[in-house]
């Protein structure tokens, strides 16, 4: 089921709790996914799974797939590129 944009996922989302802006919400990611729009905002997620757990409709907001699509289109954050290189070269995302 696609996101119905009810916003009930927001209360427990750690990203929303941290920045207190709707733009950071799983609902916004659901909205972008519904619009079939890929955006770097997909990286603004802790991947904690809370939005899946909290969604009363069991809607699908596939943040990892959204990121996958971005990477395929060459859209990546410099920090994630750096992390990939670190893993390749040092076996750790943080180079340590």
């Amino acid at each position: 089921m696609k996101c119905v944009e009810c916003g009930l996922c927001k209360g427990k989302c750690p990203m929303v709790r941290a920045v207190l802006k709707e733009t950071a919400s799983p609902r916004m990611k659901g909205k972008l996914h519904n619009m079939e729009r890929a955006d770097k905002l997909a990286y603004f997620c802790a991947l904690c799974g809370m939005h899946d757990k909290e969604c009363p409709y069991n809607a699908d907001v596939p943040v990892i797939k959204m990121r996958e699509k971005l990477v395929k289109n060459g859209v990546e954050l410099s920090k994630t590129k750096e992390m990939v290189e670190n893993i390749k070269n040092h076996g750790s995302a943080f180079k340590e």
């Binding site: 207190l20 802006k21 709707e22 916004m28 909205k31 972008l32 955006d39 905002l41």
Partner: peptide
């Protein structure tokens, strides 16, 4: 643009 979309086509958002 993304903030305006997030807030339902708002003109601007203020916190």
């Amino acid at each position: 643009e993304l903030d305006r979309i997030a807030y339902g086509n708002a003109k601007a958002v203020v916190w």
